[in-house]
């Protein structure tokens, strides 16, 4: 499953309450869903080219890290198509936490995200 790891103390419930600001800067995001235990945020995304829906899940890890992964099974994902939304999401997260760092991602060599992963 494709994922990226971030260094940030941000919590899903806080991001859920700020979702409208993400939507205003990146219209591909249509809705946010908060899990019943408040430990996971699902971001519902509409990719314009194929009017296709995706869910991105954000969940805190130990050590002040957070994982984002694409909930997609059984199909190949066009990462290039996803890149603008991923970048929009990273920019928004950075607005909410200026210290945020992208530790690594598995979206393939053709996806360039800034800030770049730490080497």
């Amino acid at each position: 499953m494709s994922h990226l790891i971030l260094q940030t103390p941000l919590q899903p419930s806080l991001l859920h309450s700020h979702f409208l600001s993400l939507q205003s800067s990146c219209s591909a995001f249509v809705k946010s869903w908060l899990s019943s235990d408040q430990q996971e945020l699902l971001l519902e995304l509409r990719l314009p080219q194929q009017s296709q829906h995706e869910y991105l899940a954000l969940r805190p890890l130990s050590g002040g890290q957070m994982i984002l992964h694409v909930l997609r099974e059984g199909e190949e994902l066009d990462y290039k198509q996803l890149q603008p939304a991923l970048q929009g999401l990273l920019d928004w997260l950075k607005e909410n936490d200026a210290q945020l760092a992208l530790l690594r991602h598995t979206f393939g060599q053709y996806v360039a995200l800034s800030p770049p992963p730490l080497s």
Binding site: W33, S36, L42
Partner: peptide, 11 residues
């Protein structure tokens, strides 16, 4: 497996 909430909707 999981339940999510957004506004007055459930997923």
């Amino acid at each position: 497996l999981a339940c999510y909430r957004s506004g007055e909707s459930l997923l």
